[in-house]
Nucleic acid binder design. Structure first.
Lengths: 200, 200
DNA sequence: TCGTAACCGGACGCGACGGTCCGCTTTTGG
DNA sequence: CCAAAAGCGGACCGTCGCGTCCGGTTACGA
């Protein structure tokens, strides 16, 4: 008995699908009842598959993060380092846009699995950033965490915006800001030091 | 009986103080019980003063927004339009930083009074932006709402950052992005049109 | 000092939510 | 076709937060 019974498998799929949809639409705090309702199952069924709500979050996050990670890895082979970085940002931004909960969810979810994926993604992100910096395409003192935070923030900012396309302008503003030569700001020295470690 | 009884007055002050502190510390969703506990009163007392939680939010928001508004009005007299705008951004950012709930709270609170203040603030903000744009200090296609969203979101993003000073770098990135010459992006034309209305 | 009106705060009601449990149904394999 | 295993889902529990209410208390004016 290694494989799920047919009906169980079907329900599991429906739960994951409904969860992804509900999270994307209502944020990472949707009630399990809502998800169960959308999936057309009792909420007990959801809890049997995912003993805790965080587990369900993790399962959905895992799918999304792996998509982004795959794309990021492809971009490492791109010739133009600056263009690769920009594309990476747009991919991440589009994902955050599609799933409103992605950004908040990653912060909120404490599952080991998700943390690992997050680290992995940051690793690739930092490589893309290092390449772009060496190519002179972006400022110093910025790492993958910063970019993630800024992009996530832009998307969140556009969430309450009246027009649906505002997020593109916001991301563009951030991209332009990242491209700008860094001014001397308090704390910049420390940034550069931390930055150097990433390159090494 | 036009004036509050002495003990009532005292309790009201303590409630407002505790609420501001609790909101700033734990966000706009703190329980009334927590606020009452901090104020050293029963939570029934809080509800008598502010029949709904939103009312309490509004009272605290009002204080904060009026501070920012006053500062913004002063900045309208500043010679250097670009510097005035930057200072405005830093003032708003610092406020959002101090009171974590400020940004989220304004979005969440639906009180008439707060909406009015928000509109007023956007009005002054748009003036500052128009002046700065005419001075060539910032790009086109940006209004006060955009700036508010971007700055507020940056601060929120820096909230989970490991280092406490990251928010300054993030705001700086956004400022640099706003200064950059606008590229041709989809939707930019529409932005300019909307922008023109604000100038008029 | 004393009566009263204002005020206090804890007990209570209510609904939402996460999570558990168990009697009933469906699938599966022989 | 049948029995046992696997799975289902709704009833149920504890908790928490908002908002109400009323019996006791306190400040204020005469």
């Amino acid at each position: 008995m290694t494989v799920l019974r047919a009906d169980a498998r079907r329900n599991l799929d429906r739960i994951l699908e409904a969860a992804a949809e509900a999270f994307a639409e209502l944020g990472p705090d949707v009630s399990i009842d809502e998800i169960a309702r959308r999936a057309g199952v009792g909420h007990g069924t959801v809890f049997r598959r995912f003993p805790t709500k965080d587990g369900l979050r993790a399962a959905v996050l895992r799918m999304r993060l792996e998509e982004i990670l795959a794309r990021a890895n492809e971009l490492l082979d791109e010739r133009d380092a600056g263009a690769a970085f920009e594309e990476f940002v747009w991919v991440a931004a589009a994902s955050c846009r599609r799933d409103r909960f992605l950004f908040e969810g990653v912060e909120k979810c404490v599952f080991e699995e998700v943390s690992t994926l997050k680290e992995e993604l940051h690793g690739v992100g930092d490589q893309l950033i290092s390449r772009a910096r060496r190519a002179g395409a972006i400022r110093r003192g910025i790492d993958s965490r910063d970019v993630g935070a800024l992009v996530g923030a832009s998307i969140q900012a556009a969430q309450h915006a009246e027009r649906d396309e505002d997020w593109r302008r916001y991301v563009q503003v951030v991209l332009d800001g990242l491209r700008a030569r860094a001014r001397v700001v308090s704390g910049d020295t420390a940034d550069d030091e931390r930055d150097a470690q990433h390159i090494a």
